[in-house]
Design a protein around this nucleic acid. Structure first.
Length: 288
DNA sequence: TTCCGACAGTGGGGTCGCAAT
DNA sequence: ATTGCGACCCCACTATCGGAA
């Protein structure tokens, strides 16, 4: 089951709300013997998270299939040092019985009693109705967002509007300092190379390669072509092959999930050009 | 008719392992 | 030993098409 990103923010007694966890999706299946931990791509995760696999194998219940997220203790996806917890939020099978057709609240009740909830296994908390309060809390806590689930929904493997994603959004202006070439059917360019000023120096903050339609690709290419120059405007850009540098005079509004530890944008996207902004005044905006 | 869901194809950061240098 | 690359994990978005509404 995958959630659909939405701009809606609502509270509703027919819905339940969970913290959006920033980790690796995992379905754990046990049919009598050892538990198999499977990634979204059906690859085994047992070797990567042996303590979680051991905890699942140590359960007295011999047959179950549960769905959850493996999260590092720091709560940060980039942190791969562990320790790791398995936050379980749904159950598909229990004692050989397919429970996917039961309403979500009933599955939640079954899940609560299905396993022994000692670390590193954790039952994912959820809240009834109060989606807006949950969302505000999530963003002020530095979480990624909230997952809203229709309380009577059945479990399906398809993406469904019964699961919605409220993401805590970040966005700011970025200076455009270059672009990469297009591939395949893409026209004009692949991604913009963007940055922000640190004092008088322009810091490289990563690439933005999505958010433009064909017309916008062509419009931006036309604006960038006269600005080409031979050297990088960034003081700290990595070495690239096949990059075209430009004078840092265009400002793009960008949305992104967060800043990475290396000062790059995570999950970046282009939102539009800011004609009114002085590039020299574009700096990193700190989280409130 | 319009809208929605699913798919393919483009693009990103980060990690890991393996092959080429 | 270092570098490059693909295959994974996380994703956002555009374009397209067929079926549901």
């Amino acid at each position: 089951m995958k959630a659909v990103l939405t701009d809606e923010r609502f509270s509703d007694p027919e819905w339940i709300f969970e913290r959006k966890l920033d980790g690796i999706r995992c379905v754990a299946i046990r049919d009598g013997g050892a538990t198999r931990m499977l990634s979204r791509n059906d690859l085994s995760l047992n070797g990567r998270y042996p303590l979680i696999a051991d905890a699942l194998d140590g359960q007295s219940r011999g047959r179950f299939a549960v769905d959850g997220e493996v999260v590092s203790a720091s709560g940060k996806f980039q942190d791969h040092s562990g320790p790791f917890y398995f936050y379980v939020f749904d159950v598909q099978w229990l004692d050989g019985e397919d429970v996917r057709g039961l309403p979500l609240r009933e599955r939640k009740a079954l899940l609560r009693d299905a396993l022994r909830w000692d670390d590193p296994l954790r039952l994912t908390e959820y809240r009834n109705e109060a989606g807006e309060a949950m969302f505000a809390e999530a963003c002020s806590s530095g979480w990624e967002g909230v997952i809203a689930k229709r309380a009577d929904s059945v479990y399906t493997d398809k993406r469904s509007r019964d699961w919605l994603k409220f993401k805590c959004e970040h966005g700011q202006e970025m200076v455009v300092g270059g672009f990469t070439p297009p591939k395949g059917s893409r026209v004009e360019f692949g991604a913009l190379l963007v940055g922000v000023y640190e004092g008088s120096k322009l810091h490289y903050a990563g690439k933005v390669g999505t958010g433009f339609d064909r017309a916008e690709l062509e419009r931006l290419a036309g604006l960038m072509r006269p600005l080409e120059r031979s050297d990088a405007p960034f003081y700290d850009a990595p070495r690239f092959r096949d990059v075209t540098w430009i004078e840092p005079s265009l400002v793009a509004q960008c949305g992104f999930a967060e800043w990475t530890n290396d000062g790059r944008l995570r999950h970046p996207r282009y939102l539009g050009l800011r004609e009114d902004k002085d590039p020299l005044k574009v700096v990193r905006e700190e989280a409130p």
